[in-house]
Amino acid sequence: MSGVSAGRVSTGRVSLVIVSHSEALATGVMQLAGQMAPVVTILPVGGTDAGGLGTSFAKIAAALEEVTRDDGRAVVLTDIGSAVMTTESVLEVLGDTIRARVALADAPLVEGAVAAALAVAGGADLAGVLAAAQGACVSRARSGGGPGEPGMSKTVSEVHATIEVMNPLGLHARPAAALARAMSRLEATVTIDGVDATSVLELMALGATRGRRLKLVATGPQATAARDAATRLITSSLGEL
């Protein structure tokens, strides 16, 4: 239905649904988030049935039925006002089975979609993706290149590294996404200059340009692997010249 090909949603897999008053805005958010997490299913749902500005009950219902098929899960991100109310109405009408598989994020649309897409790519479940989306609204306030939490526990064995940023454009969106994806796959808690290394938004907010020396701290069973992977990615110019 509505241009969505069947069979793309696999069992238990989390998809994203972008609900906007504007078809162009929904599509743009899908492209932006999809660029950083290419394997994630993101359905843009924008505009009225007639293609004007507004939200369409039928389009949202079709998208939610599609992504929850075969036990699929979905996080919905919305823009203003009636996008939220229309989505809630759709969930009320579609019933408990679909409602249990869908979470409506209270998150900024663009930042939330990017964070959610990366969480999906990192293998997060529905609750994890929702938390990533909703955590996106505090990222900007919390980050800023500070030293992080100085009183961090010393009883856990930590792996440290200082890594110099090599690529000319610094740790911008795509390299930050590659790094965050790599870190989220490992069983380790990693911070870089005090921010969560699995959060592309926090990494980007560091504003790390070429030549900056980043301090990495990793804990957990795969802490060493995380340090090595991060070092390789950052010093290899993150796949860019």
């Binding site: 049935d49 939200t55 039928a58 006002g81 009636s82 109310m85």
Partner: peptide, 12 residues
């Protein structure tokens, strides 16, 4: 109403 009104009045 939900599927045809559009705007906030539809869901409300």
């Amino acid at each position: 109403l939900m599927s045809t009104v559009g705007g906030a009045a539809g869901p409300l």
